[in-house]
Each structure stands twice: as structure tokens, then as C-alpha cells.
Nucleic acid binder design. Structure first.
Lengths: 259, 259
DNA sequence: GTGCCTATGTGTGTCGCCGTACAGAACCAC
DNA sequence: GTGGTTCTGTACGGCGACACACATAGGCAC
């Protein structure tokens, strides 16, 4: 359904001024992102940057012995990956598509150019970078103090905030890779959450049954990240209004706002 | 000794072009940073940004129940704190002086202004932000997979890379707060490291005895962060040379290069 | 329906760190 | 030197997660 396909499904692009948006539009290319697709590998050059619309991208770090852990998650509120604009040519992390969907991509060199010149675009990109940093920091804290139960709850909430619907297509095995724990630990944690009525599991699927309960299980960690993303959202809205567009039209039409 | 006091003891400031540096110079103010001094508190506004010369600043996150963990460390290779340039007015982390020393500070609004206008300064600041992100990500990985021994080794190396001399003035208690573990765990870990001959402990002091051994104890984590900071260093050097200054004069005169 | 593959559930022993408690040792002020 | 304070060393029970092993069950292909 072509009319529903628009770069404005990405909230950052939607927040751009009309001038910047129309300038960027011809440079964007719609791509399908199948789950499991590795968009950047550690040490390899970053050629394209991706603005997710309906997919979710996970930032993973892999240790020498092959163990993984998630260091961030990116949906239609941002883009992958900020490190291309800050630093070197090569990615220092592995970025994997967590949920099948679509994204608009742009050549890294082109966006880098726009980043240098466009004040407005730069503000949005940096504001997003900040939210991403907070997310990574919270993951660091979580890895130290929180139980697998709490981390799983947090992961589910963060993932589902970036998707329509309230069911996640993921196996315990895959969730284990994301959180850097064993499959069995996920099984046990998921059952605990299911006991409280927070979620409901099917083979290969995890669905939210009681969001409030799940948020309670996730603890403060999720709240902090969520607040940071709500601030980001406000920046997008104020950016859009500042440039004379109607935010409610923009958001109501294209997006499921977070929560 | 006034001649040794110079903003150029901060490597980022030293990497600026003469024009930018002389422009920034009158805005900078030398301040003494006593260990333990909290430069930003969570939720409070950021008024000044700090360019350390001889002190070390730690980025800490504190959970609801008062538990802490380090999410970054900043020495004379950068400044505190990047979040002021990216995001809101308030700090989302607590920044504490880990080692007594000096720093040059500048009003946040002034540097923000320079950040918008100055291409060169912006490049350096963003390059540093990238290195800091990598550091935070590595801490996240470390918190998941590494033992206290490894984390302590990594912490000592990162701290001493940012100081002259090879002894750190810190108690086990303080190190425990940084790593988010008990004091007793530090004691045990420090003794293990001492057994291998990597370090030597005195009451309130920890000294490197065998750097190579200590690096081996720290594992891949430290190597990755170190490589990232070496890239940052290269950026500084090439930035300085590009603007017609002699890097060796600059660095040999004022700094102890990393390692 | 049958068979097969994959996903999930459960159990046991081990390990690292925590919480708590307490003893000894280093250093400072006097 | 003496006393007091702070720092360091050691011990023990408990818990969460790991590694490994194996049983069961859901869903797809035929």
C-alpha cells in the first residue's frame, strides 16, 4: 500500500522543516529490513545510514569469545548509526535488524554533508544521540544491578514501544542473545512475568498482557529511558511547530505515539 | 608555578587552531578540582563545562536505592560534560572529581555558542563524544561479562592513563563505589592482582607494578577503549597539524602522552 | 495423522558476588 | 609512645546466573 509508505513514518524525518525535508527526500531510498540482517559489522565501513519506519534495529556488541549483549535499540524515533557522524569510517558495534520492517536509507557521505550544513537537522540528530547515550548508560547500570526478570521486562517494553501491536515475534533464544544471557534464563524469567499476568507467551511470540504490571517489573530503569525519549519527542514536536507545521496532524496520521 | 598552567594541558584545547584557541582563551577560567567534588548532580542544571588538565572526572549513575556505578571517565583528553551540548539543560548523570587536580571551565552557554559556529571545535567535541560512547558501551559489556578482578584492572589502567605517575590515590571503598561493588570485593580482587605482581597496594594507594601484567588481567575491554582513545588522539594531532602547528612541540612540552 | 525439527520447561551442581560480621593493621594527632 | 580512626583482610551463609543434561511440547511438511 504505497500511500502509507512515507519517510515521515520516521519521526525524526517528520520533524524536519519542509525545506530540509524536500531537500533530503530525493536522497532517501526505501529498503526492506529482514529480521537478522546485519546492517553493520564491527570494523567494517558504514556506507549507508538507516532511518527505520516500521523495523527495529539493535546495537549489539560481541566479545572475543562470541558472547553478545545489546547496547541500544533504535526504532522510528531515530536512525542508525550515529557513530558514522561522530567518528571514524568503520562501525565499532554490530547492528542487526531485530524486527522485520522497512527503513529509508541514505548514503553516509550525503548525510554527513547535511549534518555539517543543516543546523536544524544537526540539532535533531544530536538530540537523538543524547537519548541513545542515556539508553546505553541505563543498560550499563542494568547489567550491573538488575535481575534477568527486570531486564527482560525492560527489553520487551522498549521493543514494543517501537512497534505497532503488542506482540513481539521473538524466541527465548533470540531474546537471550540480546540480553547476553542463556536461553534457559529467559525461559525462567518469562515464566515469572507470565505468573504475574504481565505477559503471555506462545511458541516464538511474547505478548504484553498487562502493561502496567510489566512496567512495575521493569523498575526505574525503563522509566528513565522512557522519559528521555519523551523529551526527544517533545523536541521533534517543537521543531516541527517552530517550522510552521501542525504536530497533531503529523503524529496522529503516521505514528503510534509511544505508550 | 604559573608557566606550567595552561589550557593547552588539555589536549582538546591544545588541538584547536590558533584562531579558535585565542578566541576561546578569554572565556576560560582556571579552577581547582578537589577529589569528591560533585560538579553536576542528576536533574540539576549544567552551568559550566570543564576541560580537565590534571584532574580526573568520573561520570556516575546512582540508582534509586543509592547504589552507584561508573559510566565513564574523563581526563585531559576531553571535557565534562558532552550532554550539555546535545540535550537538555539538566544533567542526567552525576559527575564527580575522582582525582584532585585542575581544570579550565567555561560557561555552558558560551561553549554551546562556539559549538554551533565553530566547525573545527565541533569536530573535536564530537570525536570525543564518540570515544566516550565507546567507553560507556564497553562498561555495559564489562558489567555483564567480566569479573571484579578484570573490571578493577581496567579501571586502574583507565585512571592512570589520565594521570602522571603510576600511583592512584584511592581507597578500596572508593574504588568499590566507582565499580558498583562492595569494598570487600575490591580487597579480594586487589589481592589477586597483587599476587600476579601487576599492582602494589598501600593503605589508600594503589600503584602499578607491572603494566603488561595488568593489561593482561584487564582483557580485551581495555584494549578496545584504548584503541578508540588513540584514534581520538590522532584526530587531535592531525587537527593541530592541519592548522599549521607542530604537534611534537605541543605534546612533548605539555603532556604525558597516554601509555 | 505422522514424523521431524525447533522451541520450551525443568533439574543439578558450580561459581561469583552479596550481605553481614568481626579481627587486625596502618596511619594520624596528641 | 598512645589512642583512636580509618582502612584492609577474612570468613560464612545465601542467592542469582551459568553450564550441562534431558524431557516435553508446538507447529510445519508430507
Amino acid at each position: 500500500m504505497p500511500p502509507s509508505q512515507s519517510p515521515k513514518q520516521n519521526r525524526m524525518l517528520a520533524a524536519l522543516s519542509l525545506a530540509d525535508y524536500t531537500h533530503l527526500l530525493p536522497l532517501l531510498e526505501l529498503v526492506t529490513m529482514p529480521a537478522g540482517y546485519v546492517i553493520y559489522e564491527i570494523g567494517l565501513p558504514i556506507r549507508y545510514l538507516y532511518f527505520p519506519t516500521t523495523c527495529i534495529v539493535t546495537r549489539l556488541y560481541e566479545t572475543e569469545n562470541g558472547a553478545c549483549t545489546q547496547i541500544g535499540i533504535i526504532g522510528n524515533e531515530g536512525f542508525a548509526d550515529i557513530s558514522a557522524l561522530f567518528g571514524g569510517e568503520n562501525s565499532h558495534a554490530r547492528l542487526v535488524v531485530q524486527n522485520t520492517g522497512e527503513a529509508y536509507r541514505i548514503k553516509a557521505s550525503l548525510l554527513k554533508n547535511e549534518f555539517e550544513k543543516g543546523v536544524e537537522l544537526r540539532h535533531l540528530l544530536l538530540r537523538f544521540a543524547h537519548a541513545l547515550m542515556v539508553q546505553t548508560e541505563q543498560i550499563a547500570v542494568s547489567n550491573r544491578y538488575h535481575t534477568v526478570d527486570q531486564q527482560l521486562a525492560c527489553f520487551l517494553l522498549m521493543s514494543l514501544d517501537r512497534l505497532s501491536g503488542d506482540e513481539l515475534h521473538i524466541t527465548h533464544e533470540q531474546a537471550g542473545i540480546m540480553l547476553g544471557v542463556r536461553r534457559e534464563s529467559i525461559t525462567v524469567a518469562a515464566n515469572k512475568l507470565q505468573m504475574t499476568g504481565a505477559i503471555h507467551c506462545r511458541r516464538g511470540h511474547i505478548a504484553i498482557a498487562d502493561r502496567q504490571q510489566l512496567e512495575a517489573s521493569a523498575g526505574e530503569n525503563y522509566q528513565i529511558v522512557k522519559e528521555e525519549y519523551e523529551l526527544l519527542q517533545e523536541t521533534y514536536v517543537s521543531s516541527a511547530t517552530r517550522f510552521g507545521r501542525s504536530p497533531e496532524k503529523q503524529f496522529k496520521r503516521f505514528f503510534q505515539p509511544i505508550e
